[in-house]
């Protein structure tokens, strides 16, 4: 009725507002501190890190640690830098995200617009699958991958990430399509559209937001995964998270903190960029991931 009122939250005095801002800024610093530490120290020489103040900005900026981390440092047995592992991650992430998103969309479509007897049970089982501790599937999955000749391959990891991503992608699309007017589907059917025509021509064109949310969610999860990467990859299919951990926790040689920090930023960069570019969708994914049945 009235204009959207701007000032109906609880009013507070000037002193309290100053306190609120102080606290907010304090926490901004708290959250940014580790990132600052990583960035600042990835640009320092090893001597400067050892001799000095971790919180201080670099005195002489050097990009050598970045070069080292990207293409020179020794990970495992070979001195290749993180580059090949970064590429492994990309080759793994793209198909896994695409496949699980596509299947999730189809599943959501069937579960909402073509519900049949038992489809709710199927959805319940798929939803519950989102929450299992993955430790429980490690042993049999390793065996199955071996039987399929996919052990230690990127294809194997794609398969793993696709099937374990299905629960969430299905959940996202199901909840989105549940709010999609069924009348539109009925109208298209009366116009003679088949099952797939309805999907491609009616549902998909209006699924933009949820596709973005799902892709971001899956991308973040698959890129950041460590457990599956550590369990099912071999030296030529290792994803970047595992390579970074190997780099940082290798017990041999001098600890090159600056290279570790540069490597950590490299590993974080793709998801960070996605987050900064489309944070709104990222947050929506997180919220949907917090389960709305």
């Amino acid at each position: 009725m009235s204009h959207p009122s701007q000032d109906n939250a609880i009013e507070s005095g000037r002193l309290i507002r100053a306190l609120i801002y102080t606290l907010l800024i304090f926490f901004v610093i708290y959250y940014l501190l580790p990132l600052w530490v990583m960035v600042a120290n990835s640009l320092k020489t090893l001597d400067e890190i050892r001799g000095g103040d971790m919180l201080a900005p670099p005195k002489d900026i050097t990009f050598e640690p970045w070069r080292q981390a990207w293409s020179k440092t020794q990970i495992g047995v070979e001195a290749t830098g993180l580059k090949p592992y970064f590429l492994n991650s990309i080759i793994m992430v793209v198909p896994a995200v695409f496949l699980s998103t596509f299947l999730g969309a189809l599943n959501g479509y069937v579960l909402t617009k073509w519900a049949f007897r038992g489809s709710n049970l199927i959805f319940g089982l798929m939803l519950l699958a989102c929450f299992i501790p993955f430790q429980i599937v490690l042993i049999p999955m390793a065996r199955i991958l071996g039987m399929l000749n996919l052990a230690g391959t990127i294809s194997g990891l794609i398969l793993v990430h696709t099937v374990y991503g299905l629960g969430f992608t299905t959940l996202f699309f199901r909840n989105y399509y549940a709010a999609f007017p069924t009348e539109l589907v009925r109208a298209a059917q009366i116009d003679g559209a088949s099952f797939f025509q309805v999907f491609w021509r009616i549902l998909i064109p209006s699924s933009g937001p949820i596709i973005v949310v799902t892709i971001i969610w899956q991308f973040t999860n698959v890129w950041n995964d460590f457990l599956f990467g550590a369990s099912f990859s071999s030296y030529d299919s290792t994803p970047i998270t595992v390579a970074l951990n190997n780099l940082v926790n290798s017990s041999t040689g001098v600890k090159e903190y600056n290279v570790h920090f540069a490597g950590a930023i490299l590993a974080a960069l793709p998801t960070l960029i996605v987050y900064i570019v489309s944070g709104r969708y990222f947050v929506r994914g997180l919220m949907a991931g917090a389960v709305k049945g």
Binding site: M1, S2, H3, S5, D7, N8
Partner: peptide, 18 residues
């Protein structure tokens, strides 16, 4: 009608808006 300011007026009387 909607948006004529009547609810705002009421909120002003109530002191919910300055």
């Amino acid at each position: 009608p909607s948006g004529c300011g009547k609810s705002t007026l009421l909120n002003c009387i109530a002191g919910l808006e300055k």
